[in-house]
Nucleic acid binder design. Structure first.
Lengths: 358, 358
DNA sequence: TACACATTTGCATACGTATGCAAATGTCAA
DNA sequence: TTGACATTTGCATACGTATGCAAATGTGTA
């Protein structure tokens, strides 16, 4: 049934070579783009390869070229839909470059050391770190090992390693402008992880934005980017005697939870009794039940930048940290009272650009 | 600064050997569990390894052992939160077994052929197929290549390849019982992908369940497991002159969209005007805004089973298809009118078990 | 001390591919 | 037909590790 071929594991290039009556080198060259091979032998090899069902062994190839064509993607958790979205786009973009994704997920952020070990063992060609709270040692360690690293949606103080983020500070400042213009008086902020740069930027941008309108008071509670902690934070804030009339939640993932608490536990109407704004423009913020006013992060562009940075560093061999900072838009929906002016409609979306110079 | 060590790529076992004053074999044995090595030399090697920052090269090891310790996970899209949840759990379980995840995502289901090529090239030790509509050839092809394959949340007619699913037919039948017991009269079904076994089972279970109560009428529209198509389907169904009073949506991902359409486009109250039930018990179904009555899929148990099947087949070397069929629970929430009796509370959740024998 | 035996060690080789180098073949003009 | 040159081919080797085998060392008994 097998045509007499003794089935023992996958077919090797030598077997194909014998079948085609050429050398193993010829087979290798057939599958190496740009190698020196004549059309005639190439055809012979391809025929034999097809006949035997040959596929080059990527492992063996990696050993020789010291290029695995594998990119490690580290995402501690996928609960926030933002990350699956990123992951999917990463899969697409990297596949287009003929790279593959080795995914590290489902672990607590603190035990990242074993993760680092695995990364190194597989000799990945590059690393994308999209976990918010990874010990920043990890990134430095990788960089020190000479592997290109890109922090995704996160930066680090020491700029030894590249990063791709969106203009969180500017976006948050614009949200402050928007809320103030909408006539809000009492503000609260539900924060993400304290030690994440993203959270810090969003907080400071919002705080500074309010300040520039002469507003110093800002109630802050911690949500740690987690749904349940955000719920707790919301309960605390909404139980206070002087309840705020606007809450900025550090990301949409938490904002959804906060809206549910406000509506179903406190019986509040949004945005009549309370305005809520978020960040990311992730799936559920577009659903009619939430319809959240938020700042979008340009996932496609960000992924694009991250992949490009990696490819550049891999091919050039020199690792010079790049910091890409991409713009987002304030998308106006119905979870917050709107200002009378300043709204524009672009591509069917209503957006808000603060009166910068005003 | 480097202590005179010429930095040229990662450290090899030979370098460690020289440093420790032993043979390369000794180094290898130090890092091979169960190998014959004395505590003394082992210590010497470990010291030298630490000093040089040595990590075994998994690529080279794979070449020799013909075990990559990599499992390919194929998930065409991650829009439905069910899949990220599965992915995260898979990451956890496989890491515990010292395996890693090579993720294939972000591609249209039809062009799975290149995916297959990549799989083969990396000599993955096993494959988990969680894409609903992959050409079933793919699985067969992998199986033919002697690589253990597990279909996740999906089966195939020809049982050449293993699968892990939950009792979709039984769950859907129970939903029918539940809705009938709740006094509903006119039923609709919004289906997933026509050619997926999961969709077929849920449809047939629901249909048969209704039949056993003497109900033959069932309006069917196609949603293809996509949010936007589900919206369209919902519009069609809800615009009909004789609007149904109960809709079973083939998964929660679509059910959420259907609820939004019903409420915000048709102004219906749920469950007063219309009952909606779904399947999967995925994140948003637990959110207060939706609070969907649904059948849970036991993700942890399913992942567990899938990993166990792969590990068994990898270690034993013989690939005998296994079909694991795990039970779910009908979780009663507020998106559908409830029957007067038959509800139980277990671990704080209200569940419904149809009067089987009655 | 001498012996039998168990444990540890190093040598040599294999895994499947890529690639520098020299030999072989093809191409073209004189 | 010959020579100069470009293209193609095969040989041999290297990548970094694991492992069978034989040599070397350690352990215990008589």
């Amino acid at each position: 049934m097998d045509g007499g071929v003794t089935r023992k594991g996958p077919v090797t290039s030598s077997q194909v070579a014998r079948r085609a009556g050429v050398s193993q080198s010829a087979v290798s060259r057939t599958f190496t783009p740009g190698a020196s091979i004549s059309p005639a032998t190439r055809a012979k090899v391809l025929a034999a390869a097809k006949e035997l069902g040959y596929r080059p062994n990527a492992i063996a190839r990696s050993l020789i070229t010291s290029r695995s064509r594998i990119i490690a993607v580290v995402m501690a958790y996928l609960e926030n839909l933002f990350y699956p979205d990123v992951l999917e786009e990463l899969g697409r973009r990297l596949a287009a470059e003929d790279y593959h994704v080795l995914l590290f997920t489902g672990f607590k952020d603190r035990d990242s050391d074993p993760v680092f070990d695995q990364l190194m063992q597989y000799r990945v060609d590059g690393i994308i770190l999209a976990s918010t709270s990874l010990s920043s040692d990890l990134s430095e360690e990788c960089a020190a090992a000479g592997i290109p690293v890109v922090l995704f949606n996160r930066t680090t103080e020491r700029d030894a390693v590249s990063s791709v983020t969106s203009e969180n500070r500017e976006g948050a400042r614009r949200l402050a402008d928007f809320l103030v213009a909408g006539g809000h008086k009492r503000f609260a902020f539900i924060s993400g992880l304290q030690n994440s740069s993203t959270n810090r930027d969003r907080y400071e941008g919002f705080r500074d934005g309010l300040k520039s309108h002469g507003i110093e008071d800002l109630t802050v509670q911690t949500g740690n980017f987690s749904r349940s902690e955000a719920e707790t934070a919301a309960r605390t804030i909404l139980s206070a005697p002087e309840r705020p009339d606007a809450i900025f939640v550090a990301n949409d993932h938490m904002a959804v939870a906060v809206m549910d608490v406000a509506r179903y536990e406190f019986g509040l109407s949004i945005p009549q009794d309370l305005s809520i704004v978020g960040y990311d423009d992730v799936g559920p913020s577009r659903w009619p039940s939430y319809d959240i006013t938020t700042v979008s992060q340009p996932i496609d562009t960000m992924v694009d930048a991250a992949v490009r940075i990696l490819m550049d560093q891999i091919t050039s061999g020199l690792i010079e940290p790049v910091h890409e900072l991409l713009p987002g838009e304030l998308i106006v929906r119905s979870s917050a009272r709107k200002p009378r002016s300043g709204l524009e409609t672009v591509n069917g979306r209503t957006i808000y650009r603060s009166g910068d110079g005003l």
